[in-house]
Design a protein around this nucleic acid. Structure first.
Lengths: 242, 242
DNA sequence: GCAAAAGTGTTGTGTCTACACCCATGT
DNA sequence: ACATGGGTGTAGACACAACACTTTTGC
């Protein structure tokens, strides 16, 4: 209350504390799940929260969130990391003037980091009430993922290095939250040049069935694959990337 | 490694200074232009920079940028304002550890705020070298505008309250940076229910020609009008918004 | 042979660009 | 009449969803 906690710069401006947070998403057990951290201390003691922590001098925001994820929840295998937004409601933390920059992190479905005891995965469709304003951040991350799955090659960040179309379909379905047709998914992603066949097949399951061909993403760099068709510059339609 | 991990008691976390900046865009004289401010002080004395300033206690980031734009460059007529990104390179300011949150602001083409002497509009295609890392922010704002013009009704933020299709075409062409067909622009925006006819016409010019009908944007709330057609949920195609 | 799973062929639809053509006004 | 600019009609290109059908495996 009466505590003066605000530090100042040499220019005499009061400065807020700054933390970084991450919505780390992964498809696990057919569901899109988010990594949460159970708070050991007030405020919001015992509540689940997004992992993260204070920004240290010398770090960029991205350095900061990577460091916190590595140190506190032992997560190093992010296949994608991007900034979502910076939250600044003056009262968002009951204890201090604190800004928070939120990131979206993605992990391929085939890694399974060892987590400390106070950390666990939660299905994004069934989250507990979260600490601070974190409730609003998870949907923002999810929306960003949904949008970019549709118009970029971001699927690479959810998938293992090789997979069948059916497996990829299940990942997309979990991330998008609705059924996806393997037939059409394959055609869309092949037409766009996002996927390429790897030439091998996966063995059939015990119940039989035709073995699926293996594919991989052509690149793990984020690319926009569906230039907005609308209001595009005049000229002949662009060719497939070949 | 030996670093002391975060404590929730806010003892002794060094905190960065925080400023807000804005890329304020308007179509002027057929060109997309950005509002810049000439620095009177070191660092980068004399260089052009994005308008903005320090975050004050009690303000959100959005409050802050609105206040700075109103106070320093007398700009109050923003038709749209959204957060772009937060920049955090530790050395981005030579004088202090300083984060900057950048916003995109838009103004309709028919307002012309009075500007102080150290402030002026510059064509985004022909900008001088800017102070700090501001060079990278303007393109980010421009890209955001371009994308949202394609899949939302954001055009409302660039246009006056009534306009002919030709006038709107010129605004879109300036903002997108390429020719736009009035024919197709009209059909796309009408089909999407973004525009509605106002029932009146504009008088012909001195050289004659058929007078153009006047239109307006149906709403000035940002709406997504082109749900990504790709990977959409199964079911019958959605109907026009009617 | 039969069930299971993968993959292809095909049809229909919606949305866009491009371009020809028609309409309304001033001189 | 004719030039100038606004607006409509229509054809073609694409990209997609849906679904029937074929292929390849295990048992």
């Amino acid at each position: 209350m009466g505590r003066k906690l605000v530090t100042e710069t040499n220019t005499g401006h009061p400065t807020p504390a700054h933390v970084t947070l991450a919505v780390v998403l992964q498809v696990r057990a057919g569901e899109l799940q988010s990594l949460l951290w159970q708070r050991a201390r007030a405020p919001f003691k015992g509540r689940w929260a997004l992992p993260g922590g204070y920004l240290s001098k010398g770090d960029t925001l991205e350095d900061s969130i990577r460091r916190h994820l590595a140190e506190k929840v032992d997560v190093r295998d992010l296949s994608h990391l991007e900034q979502l937004e910076t939250l600044s409601e003056p009262k968002r933390s009951p204890k201090e003037w604190q800004l928070a920059t939120a990131y979206l992190g993605l992990m391929p479905s085939d890694v399974d980091p060892e987590l400390p005891g106070d950390t666990d995965w939660h299905a994004v469709d069934n989250l507990p009430a979260l600490a601070f304003d974190h409730d609003s951040i998870v949907p923002a991350g999810r929306e960003r993922l949904r949008a970019k799955l549709s118009y970029t090659n971001l699927g690479f960040a959810l998938a293992p290095s090789e997979f069948t179309i059916s497996e990829l379909r299940d990942l997309y379905a979990a991330a998008l939250g609705h059924d996806v047709s393997a037939t059409n998914l394959q055609r869309v992603l092949l037409r766009r040049g996002v996927l390429e066949p790897i030439g091998r097949q996966r063995a059939s399951g015990p119940t039989g069935g035709r073995p699926g061909s293996l594919f991989r993403f052509r690149t793990s760099e984020l690319e926009i694959t569906d230039q907005f068709a609308v209001l595009r510059p005049p000229g002949p339609a662009r060719l497939p990337v070949a």
